[in-house]
């Protein structure tokens, strides 16, 4: 491309992903068509939306001037249920997750055990909390016990999966060194694995505690108790100032728990 003393006065950046111009046009066209179809399918009822703007304003006002007092009894009850089910579910979830997580680590257990544990993990992860809650409410009746069951079950998939991955990533040399001393399977677990994964397990538990609290605000919608039930009622009655208060409480608790768990993790290290 030696050009003597004259150089081009025009330059365009070469395309990064699709080099072929035709393909680019096809992909861009397809994206545009999809966008038009998708937006068209929304089927927006503008009169209803305009009508909603006033209510939206009422909600924003309610959020800015939250009313903690007039429904305080309900809020208090919901909060207590949420917090208790969050804590108990996390504890139970972790207790069950540990053996399942160990069983789901390829480097520690025989294949059949591995398969069973990984199946449990997959089932727990693929079902969403709210769907589990629907079934558990149908089985155990309304109230926080169903919520507790839901959150425990959902915690298992989360913690056990990450724990199993963590164990699989453990330093093999340390495991072999302990094994070479003639240690039993339990001793390998205690001396080689536990020190390596313990800090992470604590971190995961704290993180899950946080998630469980957030979820506890959701599953109440289908009758599993907690602050979600209170919130649902408030929104149904169009009491936006109470709803705003509840949401603010949720946000503050989540912030505090994030702050606290990062502090605790630093403290434990």
């Amino acid at each position: 491309m030696s050009l003597g003393t004259t150089y081009p006065t025009h330059w365009r950046r070469p395309p990064r992903m699709l080099r072929d111009r035709r393909w680019r046009l096809v992909v861009q066209g397809a994206a545009l068509v999809y966008l038009v179809l998708a937006v068209g399918s929304l089927d927006i009822e503008w009169s209803r939306v305009v009508e909603g703007l006033a209510r939206g304003q009422a909600f924003v006002e309610g959020f800015l001037q939250p009313d903690f007092t007039s429904r305080w009894g309900d809020i208090r009850q919901g909060l207590i249920e949420s917090l208790t089910m969050t804590l108990t579910a996390t504890v139970v979830g972790v207790l069950i997750s540990v053996p399942i997580g160990i069983g789901g680590a390829r480097n520690l257990v025989p294949a059949p055990v591995y398969a069973v544990c990984r199946t449990i993990i997959a089932v727990s992860r693929s079902l969403q909390e709210i769907i589990i809650a629907i079934f558990l409410v149908a089985m155990f009746g309304f109230g926080p016990l169903a919520g507790f069951m839901t959150l425990s079950f959902a915690s298992i998939g989360f913690i056990a999966k990450l724990l199993a991955e963590d164990i699989e990533e453990c330093d093999v040399h340390q495991i072999e060194a302990v094994r070479a001393t003639g240690a039993s399977w339990w001793q390998v677990l205690h001396y080689a694995i536990q020190p390596q994964v313990m800090p992470r397990l604590i971190g995961l538990s704290m993180y899950r505690l946080d998630i469980n609290f957030r979820e506890s605000a959701v599953i109440g919608i289908v009758g599993a108790g907690g602050i979600g039930a209170t919130l649902n009622t408030a929104i149904d009655r169009y009491e936006y100032d109470s709803a705003g208060a509840i949401l603010l409480i949720v946000i503050v608790i989540v912030m505090l728990s994030e702050y606290g768990s990062s502090y605790l993790r630093r403290f434990l290290q």
């Binding site: 150089y7 081009p8 025009h10 330059w11």
Partner: peptide, 14 residues
């Protein structure tokens, strides 16, 4: 838009 004046581009090539 990466549309620099022609003399800038020419100079960059140089």
């Amino acid at each position: 838009t990466r549309r620099f004046p022609g003399h800038d581009i020419e100079n960059a090539y140089r």
